[in-house]
Design a protein around this nucleic acid. Structure first.
Lengths: 349, 349
DNA sequence: GTGAAAGCGCTAACAT
DNA sequence: ATGTTAGCGCTTTCAC
């Protein structure tokens, strides 16, 4: 461990100016790379800076220039395996531009969302990245009322807000087409919360693909879950108890798919021989699970990065109007659907 | 969506004062709940606040009182399944006290750690929660040189820093005792990075328990990994190639345990009949994996909360000197070690 | 009980 | 090219 002087009192731009024998304006100019400063003074100031261990006070700067170089990131729950990659994408992009990201977990609760929105506003964040819960319309209204750029993540653009999403409709199509190609005809659907835009779009993809293939959907094979393991488990139990025959399940996320598989397996039903299962998201566990889960991948990390880029464009005024960036989902075929990829070993990690 | 007025210009304490017909000092007193303000003025100010939609500017307050009510949280990688629960614990505790948390991913790289430490210092965070990489001694030195409270997380307290840890030595003991109780005698060890304090302590628990049971350790059964799935996989391959007989593996984290099981299973080795496996951490996947993983759980969420409590104590000056809080690990018996818990279904979720 | 005023550390006119 | 100064929004003495 290198020895370092303990900094006791915060050293300010004033101290640097005194030490270098210049005015604070000159120090500020040099620090900010403004043009028109002599080599000599620049050197003297630079020396004083390292000598004193000076670091600019960002909150003073923020107060002066009305820009905190920080953004808020509101998500339901970092412990939900869908979010870490998203957060990492956001953080990487933000850091690259010198922005701090303040993380906010709301559990999708409206009151927490609004609490955090106000909190972030007080903190003077330059923008907010928002992934709300199912009933986030009120929050979106509050966001729209604030004079801060906002981009919605993984939620369809509402009102005049920008958004970064993945094409959930297309994802639903991908899943069902794959199942049809495997020769499955009676596909059960375990959906997400009724009002969630992602859930709605995936469901629409499911239904439309059936029409397009001329297959009639059995409504009793459609169940609504809430994206949790438990709801997937319960959905599969309900499916079995209904005694409606089915040879496949498309679950609107991986957690529910895994929950369903657990329930099915406990009853001696073989995956994929008896029932093929396709999930959604391609969370990390999907590749390790037995059977390895066929799923629809969203480029979550990239979406996080894109959202930051869009937000910063808005902050800097490059982009004024609301816009939507839509990513393409990708079908990842593994064992649970009986796809031909076969055993999914270490190579998939 | 409720209708809300779009706030165009930021309204300041001055506007509120004018609207309420009082001085800004009075507004400030009322907002901060200072004693000695008349009911009447308080009401008038409160009315003006809602009328104008006023929200205090935290960065001005921070500049004035030299306290930003934000803390930095430095971790290697939020995508590592160990960290989400930690981060959530930190965030929940921080929010409860009105603190914002700035998330920083370093990938355990020294340069990123130092970059972020300086960044956070400039941002005037009131304290830093630090989980460094393997070689974080330099970072710890830098941290110690700053006039900001710091608590190390999941790392043994170095220098004069406070720390929140889990008893890794005890965890190692738990794992090995369990394996001995299952009648296993030839236990392989897949350890973490040589200089990581957690890895060292778990290893020490492994070794000491052997001595205590009078079992001599076969050095060729001890392999060093880096906490990744791949390194666990490779370790198991090396173990098999060594042709040393072994009937159990204690891996210093769950990812390596799972990697090892994949490698073993591919060679037709049955878990737990041929080889019992115990992991460490109890990441979420451990309960879902097949076979469900016996592991040593750390109370990660609680550790995150405790770290915030300790940090805030230090910030407020309640606690001046460095201290260490050590949590107890817990053995979670599942199928991979042949423990008697039997099938681990939905109940474990 | 209330107000006037100083000043936190910085940037950006403006003046020289 | 460099210095002087006002002021960002707030809290907090200090007077009254």
């Amino acid at each position: 461990m290198k020895h370092r002087k303990k900094i006791v009192t915060n050293v300010t731009i004033k101290d640097v100016a005194r030490a270098a024998g210049v005015s604070i304006a000159t120090v500020s100019r040099i620090l900010n790379g403004s043009a028109g400063v002599s080599e000599e003074l620049a050197a003297r100031v630079a020396a004083a800076v390292v000598e004193l261990g000076y670091r600019p006070n960002d909150v003073a700067r923020a107060l002066k220039v009305r820009e905190s170089r920080s953004i808020g990131l509101i998500i339901p729950d970092i412990e939900n395996p869908f979010f870490p990659a998203l957060v990492r994408g956001v953080e990487d992009a933000a850091r690259q531009q010198g922005y701090a990201v303040i993380l906010c977990n709301t559990d999708g609760k409206l009151e927490e969302e609004e609490r955090y929105i106000r909190f972030l506003f007080s903190k003077q964040v330059d923008g907010i990245l928002f992934t709300g819960g199912v009933d986030c319309d009120d929050s979106l209204g509050l966001l729209a009322s604030l004079p801060i750029p906002v981009v919605a993540l993984d939620r369809r653009a509402a009102a005049e807000l920008s958004a970064v999403v993945c094409d959930n409709y297309q994802g639903g199509i991908l899943a069902v087409e794959h199942l049809f190609e495997q020769g499955r005809k009676r596909i059960a659907f375990i959906g997400g919360p009724a009002r969630s835009s992602s859930a709605i779009d995936r469901r629409r993809g499911f239904l439309d693909t059936h029409s397009r293939y001329g297959v009639v959907v059995n409504g009793r094979l459609m169940i609504t879950g809430n994206y949790s393991f438990d709801s997937g488990y319960r959905a599969a139990v309900a499916l079995m108890e209904s005694r409606e025959p089915f040879d496949a399940i498309f679950a609107a996320n991986d957690m529910m798919a895994i929950g369903a598989i657990e329930a099915l397996t406990e009853q001696g039903i073989n995956i994929p021989d008896d029932v093929a299962v396709v999930g959604y998201d391609d969370i990390r566990m999907a590749g390790w699970y037995k059977p390895a889960l066929t799923t629809v991948r969203q480029p979550v990390y990239e979406m996080g990065m894109a959202a930051v880029a869009m937000l910063l464009d808005q902050i800097s005024g490059v982009r004024a109007s609301a816009c939507e960036e839509k990513f393409k989902p990708e079908l990842i075929v593994r064992n649970s659907s009986g796809g031909r990829e076969g055993h999914d070993g270490v190579s998939s990690i």
